[in-house]
Design a protein around this nucleic acid. Structure first.
Lengths: 152, 152
DNA sequence: CTTGAAAGTCGGTCGAC
DNA sequence: GTCGACCGACTTTCAAG
């Protein structure tokens, strides 16, 4: 699917605020309501727009402690990788997990209440997973920018 | 603000899909439509729910190359920090930037098209920022999990 | 792509419990 | 806290240019 200028602008608007009415969007895009409606439906159908979600203030739900945890497996056999990834998916504290290049194999983004909660998470949940060789935790002490949107 | 069981369940539902009608939510929560409506309004007013956004498929918009970039400043004077953070906010490729503990000062999450685009970003945009001492890039080669929601 | 109109659904307010 | 009912506003579809 090819996206024209208007599609891209529409995507950027919806990434900032998806609760706008098609009327509001039509004014910003200089289009008719129907045209905007059809473009949105097309983007949804083509899975360019994956879903619509609510963004929660982490400070208000006692999950303001963010840690980037780097993990190295003891080996890189298929079985080890499969097992590790399956177990990670079960951990609700892990909001993101990527397989990466470099010294470590994985980077995890973990939201917990505080340092105590993180220690508890490490001991009882993370290191309970088999095949973890070593870990390295990077603690965030401040947020400069944290957005879910990508400019297209 | 204190969140009861129902609030938490509601938050989790809205983090997964915010386009559900209050009717649909009421069925899952065993509440009336009005009760759900008022809880949502309260969560929005108290800024527990920050906003509603569309989540875009990165593969469909040519931004599927994700890099974690660690940055060290040459010094930690207030001026250096302020300047660096102000400049980072301007870079649209940077979707996240956190001040962290450890060997490096900042962790950045950067979405670009491919390795070439990343090299271009590094040379023309990132390293053009003053006071950057050193950088270390970690390239993602696979996604295990990538969610915007946090279980409450 | 546009306008306009129609139908159905939903958001938001109400009074009452 | 809860609920059912109401109405205006919205989404969604359609026809015609």
């Amino acid at each position: 699917m090819t996206l024209d200028k208007t599609d891209k602008k529409l995507i950027n608007l919806l990434q900032k605020d998806s609760k706008q009415t098609t009327k509001q969007l039509s004014l910003q895009l200089n289009l008719s309501v129907t045209a905007v409606y059809e473009r949105i439906k097309k983007l949804e159908k083509e899975k360019v727009i994956e879903k619509y979600v609510a963004i929660i203030n982490k400070n208000k739900i006692e999950k303001s402690f963010l840690v980037f945890c780097h993990i190295k497996l003891v080996q890189h056999s298929k079985e080890y990788v499969i097992t590790f990834e399956r177990e990670i998916l079960k951990l609700e504290e892990v909001s993101e997990c990527f397989h990466v290049s470099g010294d470590y194999d994985y980077v995890l983004k973990i939201y917990v209440k505080d340092m105590d909660a993180y220690r508890d998470f490490m001991v009882t949940k993370l290191t309970a997973i088999k095949y973890i060789g070593s870990t390295h935790s990077i603690f965030t002490i401040g947020k400069v920018k944290n957005t879910t949107s990508i400019n297209v």
